[in-house]
Design a protein around this nucleic acid. Structure first.
Lengths: 121, 121
DNA sequence: CAGAATCCAAAATGATACTG
DNA sequence: CAGTATCATTTTGGATTCTG
């Protein structure tokens, strides 16, 4: 739960309102979220399959990221079949695919242009 | 100071090593950093000028972001003139300009394609 | 002016145990 | 299988005070 009165919170809100870019970056900055997106794109569309692919992710984080991606309409969640117990499938939406392409571009940019210093700061 | 032994840290390192994209996103996710970049591009090339433009930023954060941008060679820091006391100027490098353009593209994408849910989670 | 140092508040991550 | 709940750890942001 977030405190809606802190300067910390207010600054975040101010920046997100100022430009949608900040909200997109805020989403992407959640750890593992791009990996989850890519992994689903590669065909890992089950919770367990994703967990296996992203070895070091923990349950609650994966669940949270899936929820976030779904809320932003980047993935679809198909489940709720009453017969089979808990069989859920995730797939990318068209927006999800677009984002994935955008990220590919960013990745190329990053590899070409960004010089990464040592992290001794 | 970060603990280099925590799973938290190790996962971050793992992701950054896996793809430069994650390192770029990690940089961009630092609050205010894109605003600082844009503000410098718009001609605010002094510490005080930036502080004025980005009303709610605090000194230490601004200083930290400038340092980060410099380390990544996205901005130049011209100062150290012994005559004038503490007159420092910041300008974008060519990579900084490229990044700014990339971010413009991302911003358009964000405004068009991303559906932002309410934050009641 | 352009920060650096210190300290506290807040948020994100992750380990573990549990559930329908 | 696909999560949820709780808790502790780690990291980040920001207010304030100080300095060459």
């Amino acid at each position: 739960m977030r405190k809606t009165s802190s300067t910390n919170f207010l600054n975040q809100a101010y920046l997100e309102e100022k430009c949608a870019l900040n909200e997109l970056i805020y989403l992407l900055s959640k750890r593992w979220i791009t990996e989850v997106l890519f992994s689903i794109e590669e065909g890992n569309n089950r919770f367990s399959s994703l967990k296996e692919d992203l070895r070091y992710i923990s349950d609650n984080i994966l669940a949270d990221r899936l929820k976030l991606l779904e809320q932003h309409k980047l993935i679809n969640r198909n489940g709720h079949t009453p017969e089979v117990p808990s069989r859920v499938e995730y797939t990318l939406t068209s927006t999800g695919h677009s984002l994935s392409e955008l990220l590919d571009g960013m990745c190329q940019f990053a590899e070409k242009n960004i010089h990464f210093p040592d992290k001794s700061s």
